[in-house]
């Protein structure tokens, strides 16, 4: 156990996955000699060779499309898309092929492909480098979508994603790449599809994932000072969603705030709110609150601090749940 940054934990997880199974192949732009623009694959090409860590031509459709073919040939490819806003040229392959293939093949064949994508804002970036595209993927049947918030989860989830026979869209909150946390390389990982209660509480539930997890924990700390007990749930797996953990919490607290960086309309928060009102309506003391990015394109970075859901906006939402 030692404090490790998420980027290093991901590197360790990928290295372990490649050691465990020699059919794991990484494909992406600049992931070999450079080690990726975030250095997540640093040193892997040197140690595993250029047939297993492939510096691809520039072409996201080619990255995902060739990964599909590799999977058909019995390999377990892990794609790296360089930035969230660059995944869209690959959307045809992801939506029409990767997600649908098992269904088309009537369950006879699966595509064990992982598509890693750095996501989210808060890093002062230019356009297309701060987006949160998770709802597109969560809306697409046949994909699993995960998003770790800690180095340990990143390490565990990336290894589990590689072992999954279903395709996995693996979202890496880039704001969290260099946050350190404890990492145990041999810990027994939690099931992929299980949300995690990071802090227990009785008065209000805050559900979030990725880079907003530390924000939610800070909110809970402040709530405690104000005499309110907030439960914080890290969703981890965005598709399928672990309803049971959320519902169990909301049935106790009666209040729910969902926070994500992605735009509000038709986002994950809407889905969670819909499920909670459907299945825990009589437990609710107040309407479900969403704290999200706004329904605009991601703004110029000088405006992002106020655009992104931060501690104050989440606290305001918590307050609103107590107004009823």
């Amino acid at each position: 156990m030692s404090p490790t940054a998420m980027a290093h934990a991901l590197n360790a997880g990928l290295r372990r996955a490649m050691e465990d199974d020699d059919r794991v192949v990484l494909i992406g732009e600049d992931i070999g000699r450079l080690g990726g623009v975030f250095r997540v694959t640093d040193g892997l090409q040197k140690d595993f060779g250029d047939l297993r860590v492939v510096d691809s031509p520039l072409g996201e459709a080619g990255i995902v499309g060739s990964a599909i073919g590799l999977a058909m040939a019995g390999y377990r490819p892990v794609c790296e898309i360089q930035f969230d806003g660059f995944v869209f040229p690959a959307m045809n392959q992801i939506v029409t092929q990767l997600a649908k293939y098992r269904h088309r093949a009537e369950g006879r064949a699966s595509l064990p492909v992982v598509v890693r994508i750095p996501v989210g804002g808060g890093i002062g970036a230019i356009e297309h480098h701060s987006e949160s595209p998770e709802a597109y993927f969560a809306h697409t049947a046949g994909l699993k979508v995960v998003c770790p918030s800690s180095p340990q989860d990143a390490y565990d989830l990336v290894r589990q994603a590689v072992r999954s026979d279903d395709p996995v869209v693996f979202l890496e909150p880039k704001r969290s790449y260099w946050r350190k946390g404890e990492l145990d390389l041999d810990a027994v990982p939690a099931p992929v599809e299980r949300a995690r209660v990071l802090r227990a509480g009785d008065d209000v539930t805050v559900v979030t994932y990725g880079a907003l997890v530390p924000v939610a924990l800070e909110v809970a700390r402040i709530c405690a000072e104000e005499g309110r007990s907030a439960e914080v749930i890290d969703l981890r797996c965005l598709s399928p969603i672990d309803d049971a953990t959320i519902l169990d919490s909301v049935r106790r607290t009666g209040r729910l705030v969902v926070a994500h960086e992605a735009s509000r309309t038709a986002g994950l928060g809407a889905e969670i709110a819909a499920r909670v009102q459907d299945r825990a309506f009589y437990s609710l003391e107040a309407p479900v609150q969403r704290v999200t990015g706004y329904d605009t394109p991601y703004p110029p970075s000088r405006l992002e601090e106020d655009w992104l859901p931060g501690v104050d906006r989440v606290l305001d939402a918590v307050d609103r749940t107590f107004e009823h």
Binding site: V25, V54, A61, G62, V64, G65, S66, A67, I68, G69, L70, A71, M72, A73, G74, Y75, P77, N92, Q93, T96, Q97, R104, A105, R108, A109
Partner: peptide, 27 residues
């Protein structure tokens, strides 16, 4: 069964299968 005759499934989205073929050749 796409595996049994080494004949993949029909692909309706024009051109999409060319990249799968490339990946298979990489394999």
């Amino acid at each position: 069964d796409p595996a049994s005759n080494n004949f993949q499934l029909y692909t309706l989205v024009i051109g999409a299968q060319t990249l799968h073929a490339v990946g298979y050749a990489m394999g």
